[in-house]
Nucleic acid binder design. Structure first.
Length: 763
DNA sequence: CCATCTGCTTTTTTT
DNA sequence: AAGCAGATGG
């Protein structure tokens, strides 16, 4: 080895090095996709320790997912070694806040043994809060109320703030429900995800002593994906950074895709204003993709008005063309993808299925792909969707464990009280809760003292008492047994094992999942006995979908465009490139340019995941929950560059033959008829004032149009373009056409001399 | 109290 | 298409 070689600084380009070696004070690293931001973060940590003599224990690195945290830890292991690594704090925002609250919780009225409620628990609490405050679920969807509360919490507001300036009836109701919702959470010694951040901020707001303590503890803070931070996270970092402002953040405004979750791009855009001494470093060299891929991604994202202009570059000039494929429907689309994967493997292009990712906008789209891949015998792994931890049997087992740890957790109790069936229904549960409240003890304690509940029938009381005895035994076992053994005891004593193993195949599968959970628990046996259960429950509460992704698994990865952020693959398929699917219908319907721009950034994120090859596919018809739609190709396809993109409409002759049998016109007419019938049915139930609008729409539909979405047309001056949509207007036709270089134009058919172009995508 | 049936909502994205 | 809440009958 070279005497002068330096593993920390040598592998860096000049910009990366500038970021890594920056000393004290705020640092903003604008890191484009694939520009080595994780490398910069980890090398900076190593540099701080080695060259600036910062103690490892004084460094905090925060990420959004456990996966990202884990990756950082792995790289740091190589750079700074095990011992230093153990002293570092590397974790997610939520994980860090949870740890903080385990120590400082009492300052803000939280017991140290609080439970973290997931979405399902949250929903149960919310519904109870709604019932108790007489908020009708018919009028206000729990989901809507929940999202109002969540965004308000992310903005560090309380129910009173919301009540003080409501934007509508929903806000007013939400404020009332919220108050009760929070009380219920506290009664159950529980917090939700948003509380973790909110309460952590409140700790610092409340206690100068705590603030100083934590500020002293961390001399340097590093933050990944800063563009995704919300108000609470922003404030938390401001608190922690204190006067020193040794805060290094990495991010990319083009990859901001979580505004719906409260993320505020302004945090990164205004960093220099918030921290006036900030040093700014831009990383624009991409080490991942070919120039073709970068050009395509840029050509799409540059259509956003609200962005800082920048362009990535790479040494990898040229590269394979971007491929756009048209399919008949979603299963045909999946088939095209499967065949292409097989072809790539056959021709040695992809080393294995693990090189491939199939992306989609919504989880629901994975189904068609799964089915087809299974039929093709192609190995795949799904990231997200219904995760392991959401399975009923896993949640049940966890609920038992939660109840053992936290006897106040009434929602965990509700889940397991009658699972397996013990003849304990709503009435009995209500009596149990009432007894607990009356004697001012937890529900868990009330259960173990069920003899005193006399308001219920003998039979129920007996069942309650015997279940109480089981829980007493389990609680004492919890203090002595290693975690996996505790799980064994639990499933045996409660009868859950017998209940699951009902002889059916499904039962076996469920039982296998419980065993899988037990295997996961084995990881905790090295910890001191009393910490095993708490750590286990905490980590499980904070796992995310991406965390389940296994790099080494020899299988194609099926994943949403959101979850794929931060990953990379040699070959990427982006499916469902249709208006209404991607961009999502809700973004279109919102009428907000900002929402469409977020979809476009998502498209950018998707394309830039690809190292060597990117495919974009769309289907002419798509069945998504219930009925079939014929969506025009996505506007993002029109935004691809005119060069370096290959359009494939006829992949294999077989398909073309089967397509020839399809009567597009007939299908379309039928579909329109059905749609009209539905609309009529709906309108029949509406006041007369509404129907005027529908009549107009009907005449519009009646008139046949000459052009249809997907058609290629030639314009005398604008050149060749693709029809986005065509609507009948009076006696004319208004055609919206996307021209590769000139953008999207609205034209009147009779006026603009549009000619049909030989369509490379047609049949 | 439990099992079964029916009709209804749900789904955009997630820590 | 499917999972779930609410209704119904045992």
């Amino acid at each position: 080895m070279d005497v002068m070689s330096d593993p920390i600084l040598d592998p860096l380009n000049p910009e990366q090095r500038a970021a890594v070696t920056h000393g004290d004070g705020p640092l903003l690293i604008l890191a484009g996709a694939g520009s080595g931001k994780t490398r910069v973060l980890t090398h900076r940590v190593a540099y701080l320790i080695r060259d600036l003599a910062v103690p490892a224990s004084a460094i905090l690195a925060v990420t959004f997912t456990n996966k990202a945290a884990k990756e950082m830890r792995e790289r740091l292991d190589r750079l700074v070694g095990k011992e230093r690594l153990a002293e570092l704090t590397v974790g997610t925002f939520h994980g860090f806040c949870a740890r903080l609250l385990r120590r400082e919780g009492p300052l803000v009225g939280i017991d140290r043994s609080f439970a973290i409620y997931d979405e399902a628990d949250q929903r149960a609490v919310l519904r109870q809060a709604m019932a108790e405050t007489n908020a009708s679920e018919k009028v206000f969807a729990p989901g809507a109320i929940s999202s109002v509360i969540s965004s308000a919490k992310n903005e560090l507001k309380g129910p009173a703030d919301l009540a003080a300036s409501p934007k509508g009836q929903l806000d007013r109701i939400a404020a009332i429900v919220w108050k009760r919702y929070d009380e219920l959470l506290r009664d159950n010694n529980a917090v939700d995800f948003d509380d973790l951040l909110l309460l952590a901020c409140r700790v610092f707001e409340t206690s100068d002593r705590a603030l100083e303590k934590w500020q002293d503890r961390y001399q340097h803070i590093l933050v990944d994906e800063y563009q995704d931070t919300n108000r609470a996270q922003y404030v938390l970092l401001r608190y922690l950074a204190g006067f020193k402002q040794n805060l290094a953040v990495v991010g990319d405004d083009d990859q901001s895709v979580f505004s719906w979750r409260g993320a505020d791009v302004r945090n990164i855009l205004d960093f220099e204003r918030d921290y006036p001494n900030a040093k700014v470093v831009k990383l624009e060299q991409n080490y991942r993709s070919t120039q073709r891929i970068l050009d395509a991604a840029h050509s799409v994202v540059r259509n956003n008005a609200a962005r800082k202009e920048k362009k990535l570059w790479t040494d990898r000039q040229g590269g394979s063309d971007i491929v756009v494929m048209q399919a008949y429907d979603e299963s045909h689309e999946a088939e095209l993808v499967a065949r292409e994967i097989e072809r790539l493997q056959r021709e040695g292009e992809a080393h294995g299925t693990r090189d491939v990712a199939v992306l989609y906008r919504t989880n629901a789209q994975s189904r068609a792909i799964e089915d087809t891949f299974r039929a093709f015998g192609l190995a795949y792994q799904i990231v997200g969707g219904v995760s392991f931890y959401q399975r009923r049997e896993v949640k049940d087992t966890l609920a038992y464990l939660r109840l053992i740890r936290n006897p106040q957790d009434a929602f965990a109790l509700a889940r397991v009280l009658n699972t397996p069936p013990r003849g304990l229904g709503d009435k009995t549960r209500a009596a149990l809760l009432a007894a607990a409240r009356e004697h001012e003890i937890s529900v868990g304690e009330a259960l173990e003292k069920a003899e005193m509940i006399t308001t219920i029938p003998r039979r129920q009381q007996d069942a309650l008492i015997s279940f109480g005895k089981v829980m007493t035994r389990l609680r004492s076992a919890g203090g002595q047994l290693a975690l996996p053994r505790l799980i064994d005891e639990l499933v045996a004593l409660t009868g859950y094992q017998t209940y699951l193993k009902d002889g059916t195949e499904e039962g076996e599968e469920r039982w296998a999942n419980v065993q899988e959970l037990r295997t996961l628990a084995e990881d905790y046996i090295a910890l001191p006995q009393e910490e095993q259960l708490p750590s286990f429950l905490e980590e499980i509460a904070l796992v995310s979908d991406v965390d389940e992704y296994q790099e080494a698994k020899p299988a194609a990865t099926l994943i949403t465009m959101h979850a794929v952020k931060g990953l990379e693959f040699p070959v990427v398929f982006m499916t469902g490139m249709e208006e209404g699917v991607f961009p999502h219908i809700r973004a279109i319907d919102s009428g907000k340019e900002s929402e469409l721009e977020e979809e476009r950034r998502l498209c950018y994120v998707g394309i830039t995941r690809a190292k060597d090859r990117a495919y974009l596919t769309y289907a002419r018809r798509r069945s998504l929950f219930g009925h079939t739609n014929m969506n025009p190709p996505s506007r993002f396809l029109m935004e691809l560059p005119s060069e370096g993109v290959e359009l494939r409409g006829d992949i294999e002759t077989e398909e073309r033959d089967s397509w020839a049998d399809l009567d597009w016109e007939r299908d379309r007419t039928r579909y329109e008829e059905r749609k009209q019938a539905r609309r009529d049915a709906m309108l029949a139930g509406l006041p007369a004032a509404w129907t005027g609008r529908a009549t107009k729409q009907r005449t519009a539909v009646d008139h046949e149009t000459r052009f249809r979405a997907g058609d290629r047309v030639l314009h005398p001056s604008l050149g060749e373009g693709m029809v986005v949509s065509s609507v009948a207007r009076d006696d004319d036709e208004e055609v919206t056409v996307a021209f590769p270089d000139k953008g999207v134009k609205k034209l009147m058919a009779s006026f603009a001399k549009l000619a049909r172009a030989e369509s490379p995508l047609g049949r």
